[in-house]
């Protein structure tokens, strides 16, 4: 029961804090691509992979009192920060949610900003295409973000790094 909700709570517990709705969307999408056990359905929404299910699930988790959402307004831009509260921690005690090596992947993704994760998720979305076609799609659909080819290559390298983390081939420093 509520396992799909529990997985999102666990992700936020591992990350500590996730800043930005878009960032959370992209973290789950990238995690799914790396075979992490998320259930949310994604569609391409003009500006990248997006899950209505996830948006609603996060709103539900705040409404249920498991997640805290803080809104910071900088002019017209609203930034949402998500953290787990004691009720969410209690709820999680009764759920067996394990991501295994995915935990390191979640922490690593959370170190990056949402703009970069948006690029990485778009790279993964067009991963089945030849490189030139994938780059063309990114330039077409992400023209506002003005990504450079150098950033795209950095994004590809990041995907490889995450894959190695999932396979346990990179040692991470012990967490303090």
């Amino acid at each position: 029961m509520l396992r799909r909700h529990a997985k999102i709570i666990r992700l936020i517990e591992i990350a500590g804090e996730v800043s930005g709705r878009k960032k959370l969307q992209k973290m789950v999408y990238i995690g799914k691509h790396l075979n992490m056990d998320f259930d949310e359905r994604y569609e391409f929404h003009m500006y990248g992979p997006y899950s209505e299910e996830l948006t609603l699930r996060v709103d539900e988790l705040c409404n249920m009192g498991f997640l805290d959402e803080q809104v910071e307004s900088k002019g017209a831009i609203h930034m949402y920060r998500y953290t787990l509260n004691p009720s969410g921690r209690d709820f999680l005690r009764f759920q067996d949610v394990q991501f295994g090596r995915g935990e390191q992947v979640i922490r690593r993704m959370n170190e990056e900003n949402s703009r970069f994760l948006e690029l990485v998720s778009t790279i993964l979305y067009f991963n089945h295409l030849p490189y030139e076609e994938m780059v063309r799609k990114i330039f077409t659909f992400k023209s506002k973000q003005r990504y450079t080819e150098e950033e795209i290559q950095k994004g590809q390298a990041f995907v490889e790094e995450l894959k190695l983390l999932m396979q346990g081939e990179i040692d991470t420093a012990p967490l303090m």
Partner: peptide, 26 residues
Amino acid sequence: PAYYLEVDTTSDLPYDFYRAGEEEER
């Protein structure tokens, strides 16, 4: 309870409600 107790929430069948455009997603 794995078969006879289940919580169903709106996110299990999301309503694509109309909104004016959020974080450029739609």
